[in-house]
């Protein structure tokens, strides 16, 4: 129900700000999505789409940072391993 899927904005129709429709690609499948709640979104960015509406712009920097944090968990493990 609260499923939201990341897709890449291909093009934006700016003619109506309340609708602000965009064509969004989900792994190649194109769908019409409203960007009315993500006024900052631009073509090429990824948005999380739920029920035909983008609810956020995916933050690429934060995404990369988290994956780095995970590497730290792995590094910690390797450091501890010999002692165990």
């Amino acid at each position: 129900m609260c499923l939201a899927v990341p897709g890449e904005i291909v093009s934006i129709d700016e003619s109506d700000p309340l609708i602000r429709n965009a064509r969004v690609s989900f792994g190649g499948m194109l769908k019409e999505v409203s960007l009315a709640m993500t006024p900052e979104a631009t073509a090429g960015q990824y948005v999380l789409v739920h029920a035909g509406l983008a609810i956020s712009v995916v933050d690429e920097d934060e995404a990369a940072q988290i994956l780095k944090d995970l590497e730290q968990i792995a590094a910690l493990e390797e450091a501890e391993e010999p002692a165990a």
Binding site: M1, C2, A4, L18, S34, A36, M37, H50, A51, G52, L53, I55
Partner: peptide, 13 residues
């Protein structure tokens, strides 16, 4: 219109 807060903006719109 069922849903949690996630769906509320689409329904409101």
């Amino acid at each position: 219109a069922v849903g949690f807060e996630t769906t509320a903006p689409a329904n409101a719109l």
